[in-house]
Nucleic acid binder design. Structure first.
Lengths: 145, 145
DNA sequence: GTTTTTGCAAAACCTTTGCAGATGT
DNA sequence: ACATCTGCAAAGGTTTTGCAAAAAC
């Protein structure tokens, strides 16, 4: 785990101005470690007393994403989500409480036994670049229920 | 590979009427083995001379999905896509030509070495249900370029 | 003949854009 | 002071809804 760099400094290094809305968005994503969509993000900030207009929110998310301070991705349900964890990682999603945990999978891609789903033949002639893996299951709190 | 069941029969078993648009959608997805979004699907059917209004297309995709004849999923770019391959499988996407291949991964979930991306600790206390894996790389045709 | 589906038009929804005033550097 | 950002209003694109005519069973 890396030491956290102050948000101000992050913004300065990236050439992005430190405005109230922007700082709040970034801080929330870093501190909560969550992966909200715009609606969830807006709700979370509203609870903290910060109402950000839709246009401003979208503009900031675009800015922070293109500046490389956030990652934008889509979960398998199609929701566009934002993530302050820039290191390559995967997600594990609780099917009960929908908690999302960031995970690292140590197995190398080359250890995967990949077959063509139609023919059953091994898939040999592709070159692999990366994988996005979404695991679903029950988190410790929900596993017992 | 299972033998293909006639579309008419599939519809009858699922209690879904066999209309022209619906049959064309289903046949196209089965025959092409592709995973189009609505726009691509509409374009493909238009090329075959079948122009389906947006409302009808959406209604049919919803009907076929809820009847269990199609699977709806979102690729990591956020596009909602439809798939007539009902067997559990994953996708491998060419980063050059965007071809999508259906793949099966033989390794059991339990063989994955999963660590918490924040703490580095092994993730032990979750129960796993399934995984959605999207591999990216280059297909045989594009690997050489 | 009854129920479902089509396909038009309208509505709802999410995201982007234009721009004047406010804010950050 | 200058460039950027905010936030309102308006536009754009996609998906859903209402409903009368058409088609399927």
């Amino acid at each position: 785990m890396t030491d956290s760099i102050p948000t101000e400094e992050l913004f300065q290094n990236a050439g992005v101005r430190a405005t109230q809305a922007r700082t709040a968005i970034m801080d929330y994503l870093v501190e909560s470690g969550t992966h909200p969509n715009t609606e969830e993000l807006n709700a979370a900030l509203a609870e903290k007393g910060l109402k950000i207009p839709a246009a401003t929110l979208y503009q900031n998310l675009e800015k922070l994403t293109s500046a490389g301070l956030l990652i934008r991705f889509a979960s398998s349900d199609g929701q566009v989500r934002y993530d302050a964890n820039l290191a390559h990682h995967h997600h594990m999603i609780c099917t009960v409480c929908h908690r999302v945990a960031d995970i690292r999978i140590a197995n190398p891609l080359s250890s995967l036994a990949i077959f063509d789903a139609r023919t059953g033949d091994p898939v040999l002639r592709w070159t692999f670049e990366n994988a996005e893996i979404e695991l679903k299951g029950r988190c410790p709190d929900c596993a017992g229920t």
